[in-house]
Design a binder for these strands. Sequence first.
DNA 1: TTCCTTGCAAATCGTTTGCATAATG
DNA 2: CATTATGCAAACGATTTGCAAGGAA
Lengths: 140, 140
Amino acid sequence: MAAQILKHSRQRDAIYAFLMTRKDHPTADVVYSHLRKDFPNISLGTVYRNLTLLSEIGQIRRLRLGDGVDHFDADITPHYHFLCSRCGSVIDLKMDNIDYINQLADVGFDGQIAGNITYFYGLCGKCTKEAGEDACDRTG
Amino acid sequence: MAAQILKHSRQRDAIYAFLMTRKDHPTADVVYSHLRKDFPNISLGTVYRNLTLLSEIGQIRRLRLGDGVDHFDADITPHYHFLCSRCGSVIDLKMDNIDYINQLADVGFDGQIAGNITYFYGLCGKCTKEAGEDACDRTG
DNA sequence: TTCCTTGCAAATCGTTTGCATAATG
DNA sequence: CATTATGCAAACGATTTGCAAGGAA
């Protein structure tokens, strides 16, 4: 019933440490692959359990961007994300906070708006260039 | 290779007709349950195939709100949604378009922003009231 | 010694897909 | 007829979970 007391775990530390080195918002599977170098026997279940736990205690963020896989971010400061429709990469955006849209949504609504989920999509820089090159291939 | 030619299907018509009668953004399973009244042998696969097809041709909208299930909406006019964190219901919001946030996101970004996914969460009107009542239960 | 964590494997759950048959144009 | 759509069941992929054994406080 009561919240469990957290015990130390080398695996959890390593998962969080790995996440902090990455700015590309890895999936559980990516975390798992990298962790296996230091923990050959670590299981996907352990990775998921710790990612879930860390996000529940607010130490990391779990990103659901509708691409079918959860991404994880050690940067819990408020910021927005971009999902590339072509290569699937997830990129941080530098933009001002837009939480005032909560007030816009609240107008005429009979419930309580607690927050919003907002992310952007399109082509990332790399794919914008490559898509252009692909178009040129037609003249090949 | 070429896009298939669409043939008529009574099941697809019924799925779309049902969706149009609903403002609560049903899941595939809900659609399936209701369709079984008129089509006792219809399969979940058929429901999914048609919902996917209809959303691909832009006749309906597929909503991914991070709650683990896809919701479907026959209203394809631009509008925003609210997801109740307590009961899971999905509600339409009447608010002005905020697509100008795409420009905000584009500043200093080297790719191309094509659009954004935005939805809101909190307690719906019903749950706001019920949550208040629950709190009062403590006084027995 | 207590009880949280792990590894492993099996279970879930929503969604997709292969295939033979039925329905549509 | 030529094809698309269906029903059924099996396959899938991401995530969760039960359990016995290992590790931290």
